[in-house]
Design a protein around this nucleic acid. Structure first.
Lengths: 224, 224
DNA sequence: AAATGCAATAATTTCAAAATTTTTAATATT
DNA sequence: AATATTAAAAATTTTGAAATTATTGCATTT
């Protein structure tokens, strides 16, 4: 017999599943299917799904219920473009406001991320460290914008980052890992610590631009 | 006996009320209080409130329910700052992408808005035209960013604009109307039609900066 | 007067079932 | 084989009540 999950546990479990390709893009999320898994009624599950829709991980339509967000090149372009905008603004504000503390936190976050990414580079296999890598990736980018004095920008950035990752994290795409990440992350930190605003903007753009439409050379994909 | 409203009607009615100071900032939104008004059960009303929380007009807390967003100087600063960012980026993208069609639509929107604002200036009384003025104000700013190719940026802008207006629209603040609006809106259009990106960014900033902390001269308030 | 404890009340969350709407499958017709 | 119709099944939404949790008010103690 299924145990009963608390609604906060259900939320977190679904959030993780929605950002790790557990559901196919556009998949129906039927409360009646989730009921046996979580031991709660369809109404309670609807409420959880509504909460997930507040951060954009789920799409709701009147009389048709809930779906995982669809995945298509236009949406990915849009998410990438908007993420670049938010990250550039947040990083610029952080660089102005953050001081030594921010630089230290960014250095630490990058140290952790690069350690994992170098290990991946050596073993040529991400599957054993997907979860710590995803965590370190988020922490790095989150720290980059953390000294922005705009809570709204930071929370919107988190939502867009999650949706971006939701698009990218599939087995067929090596979970969004890409060998050039190592040098691109290093470049971002270099520019940030040098206080070079223009170069930082460019480094952020260069890091993400492979996910924009119209920029990929023929024959290349996001992950090999 | 109260008639029963459709959930979409309830959503729209509450959305309008939340952006026209019908509820005090931070006011509890108890489904049991709304039940007699809309003739629906508390569960249905909870669902509507969750939908309103997806666009940031309502704040939800576990075990404590729903509230109108609070109002304080920091939050208003944050909303203003983020709105400036989104509007500047959206306007820049629109100027690049929009062509004559966009310029025509912006001109038309401005014509309508300035007509109403000039009438307000003459009568010195906004109360009779609050609703058409609010509509025209939204349409003007929405058109400004409408040729952005980022649906995410546009939908986020709408949400932030609504929350911004939610903060600003109070009787004590003349519904957010300010006499310099007339010239500031004109300036925005002038810069947009001139294709002057830098000046457009500045004009947008100048239009909204009175709502930022630390910029108001002593003794001045947002609305007189 | 202030602090504490606790019962009562209020509010929120969850439920199983009913009502409503959409989707699917079967059948008939062309 | 394709299309249209319709009934059945499936899915979603809504309900009123029960269960759970938070808040309030009152009594007692210091």
């Amino acid at each position: 017999m299924t145990r009963r999950f608390e609604t906060t546990e259900i939320y977190e479990d679904l959030r993780v599943k929605l950002t790790t390709a557990h559901f196919a893009p556009g998949a129906k999320l039927k409360p009646s299917d989730l009921e046996p898994l979580y031991g709660r009624s369809v109404n309670t599950l609807r409420e959880v799904l509504f909460r997930l829709s507040t951060v954009g991980l789920v799409r709701f339509e009147d009389q048709r219920g809930f779906r995982a967000q669809p995945s298509d090149p236009q949406r990915q372009h849009d998410l990438t473009s908007f993420r670049i905008t938010l990250e550039q603004v947040g990083a610029a504000q952080s660089m102005r406001n953050g001081g030594l503390d921010w630089e230290a936190r960014l250095t630490a976050a990058h140290y952790k991320l690069s350690h994992i990414e170098n290990r991946i580079a050596k073993s040529c296999d991400i599957s054993d460290v997907v979860v710590p890598w995803c965590t370190a990736e988020w922490e790095f980018h989150e720290t980059l914008v953390s000294a922005s004095d705009s809570p709204l920008l930071r929370s919107t950035f988190q939502s867009i980052y999650d949706q971006f990752r939701q698009q990218l994290v599939t087995k067929s795409r090596n979970y969004g890992y890409f060998p050039r990440n190592v040098e691109e992350h290093a470049r971002i930190v270099e520019c940030a610590l040098a206080g070079d605003a223009g170069a930082l903007q460019q480094a952020i753009h260069d890091h993400l631009s492979r996910n924009l439409l119209g920029t990929q050379p023929a024959g290349l994909s996001s992950a090999i």
